[in-house]
């Protein structure tokens, strides 16, 4: 991160990410909040790109922008009266305290850590390395995570599915 381009990109993307994240918390309208959350996710994807993490950046767009926020939109749409007004919450003060504490901890850690500075080299592909790691060295945890997610999903369906609505 020595050249001007990366530095400008970093500050712009950081401003986009944090600014829209802040707006998500402050804004009243839930749908607008989700739209701003999408911009925040896109900003994070941009930050990954400045770190040459191509695969993670694209997957960030695919999973968070394309899937998670869509599911959020779907959930908001199916919730009666929740869509137009993100009204008062009892947890405002604890929330602010917790967020401040987290921000403080993270900045403290990042300032305190002795970061290993990587030499600026050519762009290296990460996709094939990630693929090999997932399907070779870490294949068992990877598959277990898939099974765990499946079980969690089935459990969720069973929990919310009332008896007798399966067939007409």
């Amino acid at each position: 991160m020595e050249d001007t381009g990366s530095i400008v990109a970093f500050w712009l993307l950081a401003a986009l990410t944090l600014g829209s994240a802040l707006a998500v918390v402050l804004i009243r309208d839930l749908i607008r909040a989700v739209v701003l959350l999408i911009t925040s996710f896109l900003g994070v994807a941009g930050l990954y790109i400045t770190l040459s993490a191509d695969f993670v950046a694209v997957v960030q767009v695919l999973i968070y922008v394309g899937a998670i926020s869509v599911l959020m939109l779907f959930a908001i749409m199916l919730t009666p009266r929740a869509g137009r007004n993100n009204a008062e919450t009892f947890f405002r003060i604890p929330g602010i305290l917790l967020a401040g504490l987290m921000a403080f901890t993270i900045s403290l850690v990042s300032l305190d850590t002795d970061w290993a500075v990587v030499e600026r080299g050519g762009f290296e592909e990460t996709a094939s390395a990630i693929g090999e790691a997932l399907l070779d060295k870490y294949v068992l945890p990877f598959e277990l995570a898939a099974v765990l997610l499946l079980v969690a999903m089935l459990g969720a369906i069973l929990l919310v599915h009332p008896e007798g609505t399966d067939e007409e």
Partner: peptide
């Protein structure tokens, strides 16, 4: 010519539906 081109295509085209959702809402 991205080295994750195919993933990029899948990721970007899913934004289409978000735009449709926003305008409909």
């Amino acid at each position: 010519d991205l080295n994750v081109g195919v993933l990029f295509v899948i990721a970007i085209t899913s934004i289409n539906s978000i735009a449709i959702f926003i305008s409909g809402w």
